[in-house]
C-alpha cells in the first residue's frame, strides 16, 4: 500500500514511539490501575498500524511481517499456557493457574504475584493479533488490485 505525505510521516515518526510507550505503561500498570494486557496491547498495535498507514509498505514485506507477527502471537499464547502450567508444578498442590509468586505489597509496581507477567504476555499477544488482522486486510486489498 502507498504511504501519505511527508507531514504525516514526520509526525508519525515522533508520535509512534510515544504511543508505544504509553501502551507499555498501561500493560505494566495493569494490576494497579484500569487497563491491562488487552487495552495496552491494542494501543501498542495502534502504533504499528499508524506507522504502516503513514509510511506504506510493499506487499512482500507485509507478508513477511504478518508471518512474524503470527509467530509472536502463538509464542505469547504458549507463554501464557506455560505460565499457567507452571502453577501445576510449583504450587505443590496440582493447581492450574496457581499464583505461585510472592504477592508483594499493595500498590507497588512489583506486586500481585504473576499477574503482571501474564499481563505482559497478554499484551504481546493482543498487539500481535490486532496488527495481524490489520495487515491481513491490507494484504487482501493489495492482492485484489492485481
Amino acid at each position: 500500500m502507498k504511504g501519505m505525505t511527508f507531514i504525516v510521516k514526520k509526525i508519525t515518526q515522533i508520535i509512534c514511539p510515544i504511543i508505544f510507550m504509553f501502551g507499555l505503561y498501561i500493560i505494566v500498570h495493569g494490576h494497579l490501575s484500569p487497563g491491562g494486557g488487552f487495552a495496552g496491547g491494542v494501543i501498542m498495535a495502534g502504533a504499528f498500524i499508524l506507522q504502516i498507514l503513514a509510511n506504506g509498505k510493499i506487499l512482500p514485506k507485509l507478508r513477511k511481517e504478518e508471518e512474524g507477527l503470527e509467530f509472536m502471537e502463538s509464542a505469547a499464547i504458549l507463554g501464557f499456557l506455560i505460565l499457567a502450567g507452571l502453577g501445576l508444578l510449583i504450587s505443590g498442590g496440582v493447581v492450574f493457574f496457581a499464583n505461585f509468586l510472592d504477592k508483594g505489597e499493595l500498590g507497588k509496581l512489583i506486586s500481585g504475584g504473576f499477574i503482571p507477567i501474564e499481563n505482559i504476555v497478554i499484551g504481546a499477544e493482543v498487539c500481535a493479533a490486532i496488527a495481524t488482522i490489520f495487515i491481513a486486510m491490507v494484504v487482501y486489498k493489495d492482492e485484489e488490485k492485481k
Partner: peptide, 24 residues
C-alpha cells in the same frame, strides 16, 4: 485423577499453538 481434568483443554490448545510455531 482430578488433576487430569484440565488436560482436556490444555492438550489441544497447547498443540494448536505449538503447531503454528514448529509447523513452519
Amino acid at each position: 485423577m482430578n488433576s487430569l481434568i484440565p488436560l482436556f483443554i490444555i492438550i489441544p490448545l497447547g498443540s494448536a499453538f505449538v503447531m503454528v510455531i514448529l509447523g513452519r
